[in-house]
Design a protein around this nucleic acid. Structure first.
Length: 1012
RNA sequence: GCCCGGAUGGUGAAAUCGGUAGACACGCAGGACUUAAAAUCCUGUGGCCUCGCGGCUGUGUGGGUUCAAGUCCCACUCCGGGUACCA
């Protein structure tokens, strides 16, 4: 009929994003549009996203923020002619799948597989240009075979302090055989010289073992292997570890937040356990220095520097009185040595039991027992509380010989430095407080400083009462004292790090087995040709009754590969697989090598790494460590994995909360004691609106809506009492308590709760009473917090793809603001970008919606719009300003709409600019414009300044800095001419108020400012 | 406590080299089309004063440098992140 032709939105001609996106996703997959391979004719670009842990909750809208940003850069670089590696995979070993397995008995591999399938579907729907042929999974044996292989290579290496590099352990063995330990300067276990009971005191930063080649030849294989084990970069050692009883495993420092486990929030305690560790401390210096050349956010670099915590100072030896023992301490202030009045050992210090006198034994033991019983959290919360005990022993001051009482105290940490300190109460606030608490002497070694109220910790001023250091400044004194210590052989200058060696054992099931077995008291590696060492079958994923890791449940026959007398029972930490995954993407199917040399040479380091800042001290540090190691050993040609990094912000969820009122007690006046009233517990739960809750929160009373609520309660009381009572309830006094409950955001819009959905959702409260406003609306309150299943505030990209399409979602997430910024998710503005695509679509479907374009030469105006857009989009993408590109594209479409322009040449250029953001949309119109090839590899347009030149510039004319009017003048005019033109105006004379101008500033093509 | 960031309309934000503050959107208000709704389009929209022309004011606070400051310098307030008996 007639009216159908008039319908401006003939539905078949509208922007049909669903069909378009489904069509192109299928076509891209079928045609392998996004496959990449090494292409020596092209320059490479490597864009990487931090791969996700495939959790059961699936992706929420926060995940794709970084993925979209990196996808846009990847597509942009393809248009520019680069060969772009942009892969995706899964960090698929981890705790949640294991805990689910503990609860249900389902093998974690099955859970993981299901979750990955869901992630894959979600990711594909967003139209990313990943080369899916390169997908990796850390839990796949063909992948972790190489994780195990790297571990073995680390085990087979030592760190040469002279060359500052990891070298094969076989080289060290050869050196020992030839020259003994002479000339070997290695990073080794800090306390090893004590373990070997070598009495000599050694100088320099590291222990240099002292044996000759003859000594070495005389050792048997077991002895040699024992010595070598202390040099290896992967070693077994008794270590103070963070033990989490609830998780049944040790945790690394970066897996703990505020004294509790990061995952689950369980308490953590200190335990001495034999653990595999990796000698990351050997790389501490290189990890700091390497930051220099990286294009990373300053905050991340700073976090890493602080985490490594390099400090320069000295080690000083104190002789213990009446014992053949000494205490080594580390101090950053050796210049304050004459201020030492006592010493403090960590309660766990090995010397404590040896030197404690009989009188003090009881006090010391009680103190140690108390310290042990406290969890890490308790200890941290009592930080300001001073505690300690006296051992009864004394040490001698190395210069004055004065007697220094030796105390223990938990403000001295066993794991840092040597676990002992020289206390200088004059210069350190903690020592000062300790001295005051236990009435120990204080010597003021600072000239003219008052220390009666607190220690003087500044690093300025002159020393006094300090023997040969008197009158010296801090820097001079430090140098002087170190010289003296080294001369007397009682100390040496030393650099200390806060960074600890990385504990590598986890008492868990769902991780890479450490490819090691034991036989004859010796550690052996599983033969590399037999790798991977896969996980054994076990009957339960819990630790054994005796507290052994789950793998200890496996019988010999349960292991796919069993060697020697016993297998290693711990698995690798979560960060093992993620420390090198970026290498595997280059060559994911290689069965002979971790990565082929030609491939790793071609692709090199990651050029752009997108991910969250929360990995600053974990993943980002460990993968730098492994990369440096692999580079040292010649497996890869670069030592920093990620050249440029951008941290996308977190997209926060908007949680909705309902307020649940519970009756605490109530009183009906006039009711005699002992009369039967229903218990408050028998009242149904009452849900009240935000307003009622806020009102109550102010003063604990229900004012505004008192009537509504209390009348309701009265009615309920009547019902509970039955018809026959004759009590007067109108003066009843009610006492309440409130709880706030998270409810599913999907049943809340603009803070208004969908009552029907809510009733259905919380079935257990079927008899609950819901009090609404007069107009029947229930208002929730909300809170902005991390998106999480447990807060019911997760918004998935699937819903938005369904409603608006992936292209709109992609544009919208970029349009929200700078990617680095965290922001709450809010769909309010999504119609803006969706309209942009619809308007763009209408440019080529004008009038009645038929596709129609103009193939004539573009007008100057059209060329201006196009070239201005090319310039801005290119410049913005080059500085990773994703959000402003969207505005620029919108402006172009708005301007072309105003011009009623549908010029093919202009549209084509604009489509290439748009395609990184809205790839399906761009492909579709590209095809309609008559192209049979995908737009993907179309060359990025370049702009020509000649189209941007404008004849005139509109000068803002200011008087004393205030803009008064505008004047359009030719851009050809110089400063003098512009000045003349402005001064000739009547308006100028008006604003000058008859005064003479003092100064006239003319910046051509910018501004005119007249000062008078 | 210490170390990093940040603060711009009702909202998300833009302003790249010190040069027209608020681009682009959302929201809101008004209008067109429609029986109506949706969709679409047009107009206005930092605040205050004014019928209007226009004026004053305005980028967390206070000061400074400059012809000119959101941008640079100093001091402070608040918010976010990191870290904490690290000797």
């Amino acid at each position: 009929p007639f009216y159908l032709h008039l319908q401006p939105n003939n539905p078949t001609m509208q922007y049909q994003f669903k069909e378009i996106e489904a069509y192109w996703q299928k076509k891209w997959a079928n045609e392998g549009t996004y496959r990449v391979s090494e292409n020596p004719d092209k320059e490479k670009f490597y864009v990487l996203d931090m791969f996700p842990y495939p959790s059961g909750a699936g992706l929420h809208v926060g995940h794709p923020l970084g993925y979209i940003a990196s996808d846009i850069i990847a597509r942009y670089k393809v248009h520019q002619g680069y060969e772009v590696l942009h892969p995706m995979g899964y960090d698929s070993f981890g705790l949640p799948a294991e805990q689910y397995a503990i609860q249900t008995g389902q093998h974690p591999a099955i859970t993981t597989e299901e979750n990955i399938a869901r992630y894959r579907t979600q990711l594909e729907r967003m139209g990313f240009n990943y080369d899916w042929e390169r997908e990796v999974r850390t839990s796949d044996p063909s992948y972790y075979r190489w994780t195990q292989w790297i571990f073995q290579e680390i085990y087979n290496s030592w760190f040469n302090v002279e060359t500052k590099r990891a070298e094969p352990i076989s080289d060290l063995e050869a050196a020992f055989a030839e020259n003994g330990s002479y000339g070997v300067n290695a990073a080794i276990d800090a306390d090893w010289y004590k373990a070997l009971d070598l009495k000599d005191f050694h100088f320099g930063e590291y222990f240099i073992g002292e044996f000759t080649s003859t000594d070495w030849q005389l050792l048997n294989a077991a002895q040699r292997s024992e010595i070598l084990s202390h040099y290896r970069l992967a070693f077994l050692a008794d270590t103070w570890v963070n033990w989490c009883p609830a998780l049944g495993t040790v945790l690394a420092n970066d897996e703990i937040k505020d004294g509790v486990s990061e995952r689950g929030g369980h308490p953590v305690e200190q335990r001495l356990m034999k653990q595999w560790s990796l000698r990351i401390t050997a790389y501490a210096d290189r990890l700091i220095e390497g930051l220099e050349g990286l294009d990373w956010p300053d905050s991340i670099k700073e976090i890493q520097r602080n985490w490594i915590g390099k400090s320069r100072g000295a080690t000083v030896r104190f002789q213990v009185e009446k014992h053949q023992a000494y205490i080594d301490v580390f101090t950053t202030r050796p210049d304050t040595i004459f201020g030492v009045t006592f010493m403090v050992l960590a309660p766990e210090h090995a010397l404590v039991s040896q030197i404690t006198t009989t009188d003090q034994q009881q006090a010391i033991e009680a103190y140690i027992a108390r310290a042990k019983a406290r969890t890490e959290r308790e200890r941290q919360s009592e930080v300001k509380h001073v505690s300690g005990a006296f051992t009864g022993a004394y040490a001698a001051h190395p210069f004055s010989g004065e007697r220094l009482p030796i105390w223990i105290g938990d403000y001295v940490l066993a794991g840092y430095g040597t676990g002992a300190i020289m206390a200088v109460p004059a210069g350190d606030q903690r020592d000062w407080s300790f001295a005051h608490a236990f009435d120990l002497s204080i010597v003021n070694i600072f000239d003219g400083q008052d220390i009666s109220k607190g220690a003087y910790a500044e690093k300025t001023g002159k020393l006094a009462k300090s023997g040969f250091l008197n009158g010296l400044e801090v820097a001079e004194a430090t140098e002087e004292v170190i010289r003296e210590l080294e001369l007397k052989r009682i100390g040496y200058g030393k650099t200390n790090y806060r960074l600890r060696d990385a504990i590598f054992s986890r008492q868990r099931y769902w991780g890479e087995p450490i490819p090691v077995y034991y036989e004859g008291g010796q550690t052996h590696l599983i033969d590399q040709k037999d790798l991977p060492l896969t996980l054994p079958k076990i009957d339960s994923y819990l630790p054994t009754d005796s507290g052994e890791p789950p793998l200890a449940r496996a019988a010999k026959s349960d292991w796919p590969l069993f060697k020697g007398e016993a297998m290693e029972h711990s698995t690798m930490p979560g960060w093992a697989g993620s420390s090198w995954y970026f290498l595997r993407y280059m060559d994911p199917k290689n069965t002979r090598e971790m990565v082929a040399a030609d491939k790793v040479h071609y692709w090199g380091a990651v050029d752009l790494y997108m991910g969250g800042a929360e990995h600053a001290t974990g993943h980002l540090l460990y993968s730098r460590f492994w990369t440096k190691f692999l580079c040292d050993r010649g497996f890869i040609p670069f030592e920093e994995p990620f050249q440029k990094m951008i941290n996308q912000g977190m997209i926060l969820g908007r949680s909705s909360l309902v307020h649940r009122l519970e009756l605490a007690s109530y009183l009906v006046p006039g009711v005699p004691d002992g009369a039967e009233l229903p218990s408050p517990r028998n009242f149904p739960v009452v849900y009240v609106t935000k307003e009622i809750y806020e009102d109550w929160a102010k003063d604990g009373k229900l004012n505004l809506h008192k009537f509504a609520v209390e009348q309701r309660l009265e009615t309920l009381l009547h019902e509970l009492l039955g018809k026959d009572h004759n009590m007067n309830l109108s003066n009843a006094e009610w006492e309440y308590s409130f709880t706030r409950l998270h409810v599913d955001v999907n049943m809340v819009r603009n803070d208004e709760l969908d009552l029907a959905a809510f009733a259905k959702w919380r079935t257990e409260n079927a008899d609950a009473v819901i009090i609404t406003n007069e107009d029947g609306v229930y208002k929730c309150s909300h809170e902005i917090e991390k998106m999480s299943k447990r807060w019911f505030n997760v918004v998935t990209p699937d819903d938005l793809c369904e409603e608006y399409g992936a292209d709109t979602l992609r544009l919208y997430e970029m349009f929200l603001g700078p990617v680095e910024q965290s922001k709450p998710w809010d769909t309010q503005g999504i119609s803006g970008v969706h309209n942009f695509l619809k308007r763009f679509w209408r440019l080529c479907h004008p009038g009645d919606g038929e596709f129609s374009i103009n193939r004539t030469e573009p007008t100057p105006k059209e060329l201006f719009i196009l070239h201005r857009t090319i310039k801005r989009v290119t410049e913005d993408l080059d500085r990773f300003s994703w959000n402003t590109v969207v505005s620029t594209l919108m402006i172009a479409v708005n301007d072309l709409t105003t011009e009623k322009s549908s010029n093919a040449q202009v549209l084509e250029g604009l489509l290439v600019l748009t395609s990184p953001y809205a790839p399906h949309f761009a492909e579709e119109l590209w095809k309609k414009l008559g192209h049979s090839d995908s737009i993907t590899r179309e060359a990025w347009p370049t702009y020509d300044e000649k189209h941007l030149e404008e004849a005139n510039f509109e000068y803002p004319v200011s008087f004393n800095g205030k803009t008064r009017f505008k004047l359009s003048l030719s851009v050809e005019m110089g400063a003098k001419e512009v000045e003349a033109a402005v001064m000739a105006l009547a308006d100028t004379a008006k604003y000058l108020e008859g005064k003479d101008p003092k100064k006239i500033i003319v910046v051509p093509k910018r501004i005119v400012n007249i000062v008078f």
